[in-house]
Amino acid sequence: MDGRNISNPGTEPVVADKTDLPSVRDIARRPFFAAALNRSAIGEYEPQTEVDLIATWWARAGLDVDTEATPKRQRALIDIAENGVRNLGKGISTRALKDSIIDQIAALKTDKIIREERGDSLLTFSHDIFFEWAFFRLLIDLGDDWTNALTAAGEPPLLGRVVGLMCRDDTA
């Protein structure tokens, strides 16, 4: 399957245009990444790898455009990921989150990055890749101490993909 045969409604025209670029075509083969590309304004910047795609997504904190709320949304994503690492981004208690993070939940829900469960008592990342990308950004923020976050999480094997991203990232 190439990037032009994406089965996600609404992604076909934009993804088809973006997959004319050879480096993007490889990323766009997976429907999730095709949707992320569709939501990201690439402009003159052409993602070469998943790490590049994360950087594009992160710069907008999951949005299509930069806003004044972007730093607050980024902080919220990192804090939600950090609080949810033991359950790999699922069943995160809202009681453990700061008010400034709670203030961002409505926008993150609207953008389908997180969803609320159990009468709004718990948060879950709507896709495991959103959790992985937010946790990846947490590890970058921790700098040389990033391995401590893995130890604190109990070193779950499913975080191996995030460790792989760290190994491919030249900013880490």
Score class of each variant (00 low, 15 high):
A59N: 05
A59L: 01
A59I: 00
R60Y: 02
A61Y: 03
G62P: 08
D64E: 15
V65A: 13
V65H: 14
V65S: 15
D66H: 04
D66W: 01
D66N: 07
D66I: 01
E68C: 02
E68G: 10
T70K: 00
T70Q: 01
T70V: 02
K72T: 02
K72A: 08
R73L: 15
R73A: 05
R73V: 01
Q74K: 08
R75C: 06
R75L: 12
R75V: 03
I78P: 15
I78H: 07
I78F: 04
I78T: 06
D79H: 15
D79K: 14
I80E: 03
A81Y: 05
A81F: 05
A81H: 07
N83H: 08
N83G: 07
G84T: 01
R86K: 13
R86N: 12
R86C: 07
N87K: 11
N87T: 11
L88S: 08
L88T: 02
L88H: 08
L88E: 09
L88N: 09
K90E: 13
K90V: 05
G91K: 12
G91L: 09
G91P: 11
G91Y: 12
I92M: 09
I92N: 09
S93H: 11
T94F: 04
R95W: 03
R95P: 03
R95G: 04
A96R: 10
L97H: 03
K98M: 05
K98Y: 07
D99L: 04
D99M: 05
S100Q: 12
S100I: 01
I101S: 13
D103S: 14
D103I: 01
Q104A: 11
I105A: 03
A106Y: 03
A106I: 01
A106N: 08
L108W: 06
L108H: 08
T110D: 14
T110C: 07
D111I: 00
K112T: 11
K112Y: 09
K112F: 11
I113C: 01
R115C: 11
E116D: 14
E117K: 14
G119S: 06
D120H: 10
T124H: 14
T124V: 04
H127C: 06
D128C: 04
D128Q: 09
D128N: 13
F131P: 08
E132F: 14
E132M: 15
W133H: 12
W133I: 02
A134K: 07
A134C: 11
A134N: 11
F135V: 03
F136A: 04
F136Y: 13
F136N: 06
R137D: 10
R137L: 03
L139C: 06
I140E: 13
L142A: 10
L142N: 12
G143L: 03
G143E: 11
D144I: 01
D145E: 13
W146V: 00
W146H: 12
W146F: 05
W146Q: 05
W146I: 00
T147L: 05
T147C: 06
N148Y: 14
L150I: 02
T151F: 08
T151P: 14
A152M: 03
